[in-house]
Design a protein around this nucleic acid. Structure first.
Lengths: 335, 335
DNA sequence: CTGAAAGCGCTTACAG
DNA sequence: CTGAAAGCGCTTACAG
């Protein structure tokens, strides 16, 4: 017998389990004397309520599910920190899954969390996800869902994002303002809404300043350092090498930077560079990288808060809400 | 009615819940025909077993609790990635808590996870923890526990660590080999076993090479960038400024580096620098930082594996085991 | 091959 | 103020 139960306490005190249960939750009906006896024995036997049993009974869970592409990735781990922070204060524990950027695993993750009857889910989509039926299933099961950063455009669900278009537009406009004319874009995957928005911001900035859109300057790819290296490798092979590169995120910017340096070019003299996210390590590189700040911790906080608002609303579902946080161009030495 | 239950299926098929339960778990007693009917309806109604109810009944949980000082901190988020990877393959989901490096919150975290009746716990201790009674409680409750990286010396429990002494000894010996003689150490908190071991390695290396131990060269502190800055600030104020610094971890090394640079000194010309962990961003700084590699992802993998070995052993507890992973000195440009 | 019954550890109307 | 009973969604001896 490892864990003390309510029945153990009831037996020892010659009370009914109902009374013990009420005493433990400080029900007004119960006499102070009984409460004291129960509490004393509970402390003595190190009683801890079985949350599993409690959840089954009350149909309320104190767990929140989180799915991200990769836990080790500064942006996501910072978001998770923010989520945990707020969840902790509200008495929730988080269950964390990673999709490894694959659709299959994301689907399995949503199933596992649903089977665990989490109170709600917070998801940042995998790069490989185009079918969003699994999210519909989650919602049909009555599990509140909030998407953050990597969201699905055509899913009617609450979201927390940043002004990706604006952020990209501002970054590219700034590059143009510093005299750059041949600005390339390492764009990530077009399957992700967030990437499409950033690309649109890039394109709009060029057009608004009367610069041509050159297809060879827009390269798709992934979101990791190696994708940045590879993309940069391709750009350097061009007839007319770009004089600036705006990347879909910071890891790609860092990969691009490393490749540029290895090839003997200089940032920013030969090529200016702007990333997206403001991961801490962008400030560590020499030259320190210009980047678009994304408030990762705050995204996490807002996402859980939004989710918990749904818990509070009971069974009448709240209207869908999209929170758009402001980005900010952090100008440093790579531009 | 959101989630389909076994009873729903039983009613529709005019079967008993027991039969449905058996059919679902492919029990040999049940006829193939019945199994087919059950499975078909289960799929159609999108039945997902209620893991909560299952856990309560079987007294087995498919959740593993993880407590780290901080989720956003490359080392820990990488360990968590490793944990999730192995846990996922074995059908477990992880519940992640952060102690924010405080004892109080660590205690609350262990309680919350115990109340959730996790199958086991994986913990890296907070800086503020000296009393380890809460871990004893966890063990008394029959919850397998494995400590990693930041472990308690006098707790009889399985652990996954690296050869901290060796790692430190090797790093400092290397510094001595390159001609450095005034080697300081930013040592972290002496409450942590891991820090004491690294410090011992530092001291042993000095002594073995006939160098004096200078108290003013050994500075306690925390584990973050700002602690490195502050420690370095103090070292630079010394009569005789050190010509090398070995730090308890990489964030501290980075803080020290930034302060050195801001003060107009050069790494490694004026001061050589060695960190500990080999966080990815140490390779991003110019000059790239020499550091002691700690296999973070592997630490995570080994820790869960050890934990799961305990699940398998049933109620006869396994002998305590300590896995010591090898470190490796990564020589780069800061030395 | 299938079902009735009991129970995992709780909570909560309903009585008294 | 306290207790008996039912039930949350499952599983598993025990019968038949």
């Amino acid at each position: 017998m490892r864990h003390t139960t309510i029945n153990d306490i009831a037996r020892q005190l010659r009370l009914s389990p109902s009374t013990v249960s009420r005493a433990l939750r400080d029900h007004p009906d119960i006499s102070q004397k009984t409460k004291n006896r129960v509490l004393a024995l509970a402390t003595e036997t190190n009683y801890q309520p079985n949350l599993i049993a409690q959840s089954l009974q009350t149909k309320r869970s104190n767990n929140i599910g989180v799915i991200v592409p990769e836990i080790r990735n500064t942006f996501f781990s910072t978001v998770i920190s923010g989520i945990e922070e707020v969840a902790y204060d509200a008495g929730y524990t988080i269950m964390v899954c990673q999709s490894n950027d694959t659709y299959e695993r994301e689907v399995i993750n949503t199933r596992a969390l649903a089977a665990n009857r989490v109170a709600g889910m917070l998801v940042s989509m995998s790069q490989g996800t185009t079918d969003i039926e699994h999210f519909r299933t989650v919602m049909q099961q009555g599990i509140p869902l909030v998407l953050f950063d990597r969201v699905a455009e055509d899913l009617e669900v609450s979201k927390v994002i940043v002004d990706d278009f604006e952020g990209a537009y501002g970054a590219v406009s700034y590059l143009i303002g510093t005299g750059r004319r041949r600005i390339a874009h390492l764009a990530g995957s077009s399957s992700l809404y967030v990437s499409r928005k950033r690309r649109e911001g890039y394109e709009a900035a060029l057009m608004d300043h009367g610069l041509p859109l050159r297809p060879e300057y827009i390269l798709g790819g992934g979101y990791h350092e190696e994708d940045g290296r590879y993309g940069m490798h391709q750009l350097l092979a061009l007839q007319e090498v770009p004089d600036a590169v705006f990347t879909v995120n910071d890891p790609v910017a860092i990969g691009a930077f490393l490749h540029i340096r290895e090839q003997g070019f200089s940032v920013p003299d030969d090529i200016a560079l702007v990333g997206f996210s403001n991961n801490p390590n962008t400030a560590l590189i020499t030259p320190r990288l210009t980047t678009v700040n994304q408030p990762a911790f705050e995204i996490g906080r807002q996402a859980v808060s939004l989710l918990m608002k749904n818990f509070a609303s009971g069974h009448n579902p709240l209207p869908v809400e999209t929170i758009i946080l402001k980005t900010q161009l952090i100008i440093r030495e790579s531009t």
